[in-house]
């Protein structure tokens, strides 16, 4: 599975299927600090994603 982070860094995640929440926690990301989309559609953090998926992380916290 491909994980695209908010800084456009890309990581290949093995051990799928897994929930979005598990993947974020393994990447050191608090699921409350981000939104996640798959193919342009928002998905909830308990969605199970598989090897063929590409998910994108959107960081939500901005100062100012």
């Amino acid at each position: 599975m491909k994980l695209i982070l908010s800084d456009h860094d890309e990581r290949i995640i093995e051990h799928c299927p897994a929930t979005v929440e598990q993947i974020l926690l393994e990447a050191g990301i608090n699921p409350l600090d981000v939104l996640v989309s798959r193919n342009g559609n928002l998905i909830s953090e308990d969605t199970v994603v598989g090897d063929e998926d590409e998910i994108r992380v959107i960081r939500i916290a901005h100062g100012g």
Partner: peptide, 18 residues
């Protein structure tokens, strides 16, 4: 694609976004 692996909405059968 939108439904695969997703939980469904508590109020309808659409995939949950939150």
């Amino acid at each position: 694609q939108k439904v695969r692996g997703a939980s469904l909405c508590s109020r309808c059968d659409e995939p949950a976004v939150v």
